[in-house]
Design a protein around this nucleic acid. Sequence first.
DNA 1: TTGTATGCGTTATCAA
DNA 2: TTGATAACGCATACAA
Lengths: 377, 377
Amino acid sequence: MPFCGRLVPLVRLTLLRNSDTMAIRLKDLAHHLNLSVSTISAALQNRDDISEATRLRVFAAVKKFGYHPNSLARSLVTRKTHVLGVLVPDLSRSFFAEVLKGIDSVTSAAGYNLLVCNTEENASREEDMFRMLLSNQVDGVLLASAHEPNDTAWRKTLLELSVPLVLIDRRLPGLNFVGGDDTGIGFEATRHLYAQGYRRIAHIAGPRTVTTAVGRLSGYRRALAALKLPSEEDLVIESHYHEESGGYEAMQRLLKLGSPPDAVFAASDPIAIGALQAALEADLDLPAKFGLIGVGNHRYGRFLKVPLSTVDQQRSQIGHLAAELLLASMDKKRLRPKAVLTEPKLVVRDSSNRIGFSEILATMDSGKKNAKHPARR
Amino acid sequence: MPFCGRLVPLVRLTLLRNSDTMAIRLKDLAHHLNLSVSTISAALQNRDDISEATRLRVFAAVKKFGYHPNSLARSLVTRKTHVLGVLVPDLSRSFFAEVLKGIDSVTSAAGYNLLVCNTEENASREEDMFRMLLSNQVDGVLLASAHEPNDTAWRKTLLELSVPLVLIDRRLPGLNFVGGDDTGIGFEATRHLYAQGYRRIAHIAGPRTVTTAVGRLSGYRRALAALKLPSEEDLVIESHYHEESGGYEAMQRLLKLGSPPDAVFAASDPIAIGALQAALEADLDLPAKFGLIGVGNHRYGRFLKVPLSTVDQQRSQIGHLAAELLLASMDKKRLRPKAVLTEPKLVVRDSSNRIGFSEILATMDSGKKNAKHPARR
DNA sequence: TTGTATGCGTTATCAA
DNA sequence: TTGATAACGCATACAA
């Protein structure tokens, strides 16, 4: 066969190539060291069929020329990108920010990087970004979905997906999930208010399009039933999850009721903060005449005008567990879907601490709950 | 812009190839349509040298089989990944979470995705992750560096980098930068306290290893000088940036001084919150006897026991501007480095509002500043 | 222990 | 308007 080598421009034969614009390749190192590309590749992987001498030469050259491998090329052949996709509705919400950090602490230790997407609570945007993640050949996906829970088409899509997937915060049946035990949260919060002597307990809920809100509401209702309290529709108001104004307005409506509540379980800390504002403006006496508890254990809850009781769903723990579950289901592909719920932790502060339970006692109280309301898996 | 797979089902039909494990390739479509790979590729890019008829056939097949392009392969040849790297010290801090969201809102609109790294305020970890980003062939990098500002080796590395780079929040000379005007922040905060009649103004600073802390301190000093107030070393305490406990302890030390301050400019809202706690425990009367202002305009500052005055450095704006600067410097490679400082906005609340200036008046006051202390670019 | 040949899925060039 | 072929940078089976 006549000359049929690749037409390699001469420039590339110079060691540093177009020095400024182009990165060093294995080929360049090979040329410089009078070795073959495959030898260098083997040396870089510390394979034991390479002599110590050349291994050292290779590493010296790598250092000297500042070589770093091209992950695109590598991933193209290994079919592994070491990149995971994360889709959340709003990066700036402290919940997702803390979950994300929890995820990262596990995945980065395992050598994975995060391609992070902000879906802006928009379902079609979420689908676009999901497609992008698949195009980018991510090894797995963590998703807090913006789709409505009854969107069966979307659920079907997710079920048929071939990439390992773990849902966070918002659950769909049949899929891996890590999140708070929302029913438990609602149950515990309500039961706590009852234990503090409040008897007319209202609930300011999150939007019913989010599964966590549905779960917390249902926990609230279960607790009312268990405590033999009547369930009044007037005492449940649907609001925004993460805007104080929602809680503020809801609280104002509750106060206008013929017989207003003496306590409120707010589905989130922002809701609770808004409600607190309205309660203070109405000169309610917390916790003597009015009790309030939120969800989320926001960092600044204890610095508020009235330090806020809350239920901690253990955010960073959710991140850790989700990342671990994802890594595990990447390992052995066909694992049956698993749901992991973190245990709700009652954090009692002034806003609901009427009879002087200390946080410690309250925690003990919460400990008993497993008998009555065990976390399901 | 190449084909991005809009309106394409996420799940592919599994007729071709090793059905379950392998994704559909151009080759598979080509085989199915009796066309060549290059024709399909051209059709997907909507190139105008492809007949409308085949273009439609191709798109139909794409939809039918749920094809989505392999970005790795594409990027390998186009030398463009449409991925940007972001390195921040702590994803869960509200500042970086909000900046990140701001970044994402402009980059995602421009078709870029974010590879996000949490450096944990650790310089060597930052270098590792930076290397990883380069391996991943990111098209550009946004960096809030954990390196000490006088680390000349690191600065040299960054200066010699071939990938477009924009620093955020923490500045280094000679490099693109977007962040708050920290000297201006320190100056305005201090001047505001002075305008409210406080005369013995202390500063609880951030760690001097972070340029923002240095800038705010220097703004504080400049203001003292401009206002003919003495600069006393006792009145400056270095603390942690984002832990309330730091501000708490610093405040306690200040209160033990022979002649304690009558006002504190805290370098961050968390510091201010800790200081507020200590001040309230010491029964200080805010704002009558004691004034306090922080930096950051944290979402919950206005709900605190004493609503907190603060200087807003405009977080999401920083994200927007940083992303725009990065995209611009990716466009025309050799742009001389640019520093963009957002204008500090005074937010006056109860903690420093002694003589009853409304927020509006305070804003006007802040407006005048440009005469005395113009933001430099 | 090292080198050769081949292919990963795509784009780009140029000929048909 | 379409198709064959050569890259892109790397890993890997197998030959030397």
